[in-house]
Amino acid sequence: MSAKAEGRFHSVDVFPITRGPRRVTLRTSDGIRIEALHEPCTAHESDTAIVVAHGFTGSVDRPAVRRAAGVFARRAGVVTFSFRGHGRSGGRSTVGDREVLDLAAAVAWARSLGYGRVVTVGFSMGGSVVLRHAALYGPEEPEGPDTPDTPDTPDRSNRADGAHTDAVAAVSAPARWYYRGTAPMRRLHWVVTRPFGRLVGRYGFGTRIHHRDWDPVPLSPVESVPLIAPAPLLVVHGDRDPYFPLDHPRMLAAAGPCELWLEPGMGHAENAADDALLGRLADWLVGA
């Protein structure tokens, strides 16, 4: 599961911006069809679009995603989509690796609709994806002396394709890969790594999971944080998150410039984010 060849996106069924919702199919740079939905701001004209990256086993039509989109749409335009292997999108989930291509396609589509600012917010797995996406994709830079690559240099060859984000918020995101320190994460690893677990994922959670291991291992969330600037970064985490304890958001916050919100009483991801928090998130994204 490698994101080494992350390239330009392609889309199909893309229409001009309208006042009503528009559901489309996007094609990622590696040929996966991704379902996506655009909803204009419901309160006023907005120059900002918020692109929402859901958590593992989520989709564009899951109630928690629709609730978040409804709150965000009071402040900005909203693009939601289903990651590969989820909902009606094609392909199989790589649990955070090639999903960065899905997000890139959604961000670039949002820009094609005419928005001047496009920002991203991700939950859980989607939180790790928005961090990697922000590190790997940046605005076009002026020409200058070439900087030699090193083995740890991420592929940032996509600067001019409109897939960059202007601000990023990661909610309930892990800081590092392969974490198994909580019971929910041990169960998740069983679903992802075992053949019978993948059957449970497919038929129990509606999520089709790829059987291959990551090769090479993608840039981790904590390694991504220092590469995100100058885009503003917000890390949000609940102090009752059953998946990732508080050392994860603290590691992310210590890795580079960012704002950290530790939310008292909050659990995990979009299901645990109440409307008040979603409203604060949207205000931060629009104003960042």
Rank of each mutant, 00 (worst) to 15 (best):
5 A>C: 04
7 G>P: 11
11 S>M: 09
14 V>P: 14
15 F>I: 15
16 P>M: 02
17 I>Q: 15
18 T>G: 13
18 T>C: 02
20 G>F: 02
20 G>I: 08
21 P>R: 04
36 A>S: 13
37 L>D: 14
38 H>F: 15
40 P>I: 03
42 T>N: 07
43 A>H: 15
43 A>K: 15
45 E>G: 14
46 S>R: 04
47 D>M: 01
50 I>W: 07
51 V>C: 10
55 G>V: 10
59 S>I: 03
61 D>C: 06
62 R>C: 09
62 R>Y: 10
63 P>W: 08
67 R>I: 09
70 G>A: 05
70 G>I: 07
71 V>H: 09
73 A>V: 05
74 R>K: 12
76 A>R: 12
77 G>R: 00
82 S>Q: 01
89 S>M: 01
90 G>W: 11
93 S>Y: 09
94 T>L: 03
97 D>M: 09
98 R>S: 12
99 E>M: 05
99 E>G: 06
100 V>P: 12
104 A>W: 10
108 A>H: 11
109 W>R: 12
114 G>N: 08
118 V>R: 05
124 S>G: 11
124 S>Q: 02
126 G>C: 04
127 G>K: 03
127 G>P: 03
130 V>K: 00
133 H>E: 01
133 H>Y: 00
137 Y>T: 14
139 P>V: 02
141 E>P: 08
142 P>C: 00
143 E>N: 13
148 P>A: 06
149 D>Q: 14
149 D>K: 13
149 D>R: 15
149 D>S: 14
157 S>A: 12
158 N>F: 03
162 G>T: 14
162 G>I: 09
162 G>S: 08
163 A>Y: 10
169 A>V: 04
171 V>H: 07
176 R>M: 13
176 R>C: 06
176 R>P: 13
180 R>G: 12
182 T>I: 01
185 M>N: 15
189 H>W: 14
190 W>L: 13
192 V>D: 05
193 T>R: 08
197 G>E: 04
203 Y>E: 08
204 G>E: 05
207 T>K: 09
210 H>T: 01
211 H>I: 11
214 W>K: 07
214 W>F: 11
214 W>C: 04
215 D>S: 15
217 V>W: 11
218 P>T: 02
220 S>F: 01
221 P>H: 06
222 V>M: 00
224 S>K: 02
226 P>L: 03
229 A>I: 01
231 A>H: 04
231 A>D: 06
240 R>V: 14
246 L>K: 12
246 L>H: 10
252 L>K: 09
253 A>R: 06
255 A>P: 13
255 A>N: 03
258 C>N: 10
259 E>I: 00
265 G>L: 04
266 M>A: 05
267 G>I: 08
271 N>E: 15
272 A>Q: 10
273 A>N: 05
275 D>G: 02
279 G>L: 11
281 L>M: 07
282 A>R: 06
283 D>F: 04
286 V>D: 02
287 G>H: 12
288 A>R: 00
288 A>K: 03
